[in-house]
Amino acid sequence: MILGLLMVGIIVCSILAVTAKRLLASAIWLAGVSALSATLFYMLGAREVAVIELSVGVGLVTVLFVFAISIAGDESMDAKSLVPRVLAWILALAAVVLLGWMALPEVHTAEKITELTSTDILWQQRGLDLLVQVVLIFAGVLSVLGLLSDKVRPPSGKAKGDR
């Protein structure tokens, strides 16, 4: 029952995040999706992921979005989309049907087996993943710094038109 309500809430929040006119509202609805997902993860037994989703998905990503929107401006865009909306809905529905057709027959619940703790799995079996994560975070920070740095442009005659 509660799982169903959470799933409905996640879907409603994601629809509102995609269809909101203002970018700030879109970011806030995305934070709602993350918060409800974190609750769902906790109820499914994935406690570490719930905590990380709550701190990263609701906290860090929302702060990043608000920061980017405050710099770039909250411009609403009512123009026609590049792909016609009807075609986009049809493609999305086709993807949902395909996904369900592939995923749902694989459903079979198994008994809970004794396994290593998630910390052991992360450090012993998934050490390469951890290394890739560290490298990715480093590369991400470097690229964000490079992208956000204001380079001093050489003076030119057309400087008036620059924005």
Binding site: G4, I11, V18, A88, A92, V96, L99, A103
Partner: peptide, 19 residues
Amino acid sequence: LVLIGMCGVAGVGLYGLLA
């Protein structure tokens, strides 16, 4: 239930990506 919901969320994300 969660898998059906996951399909719905993926569809909404794909629609947003396209539109």
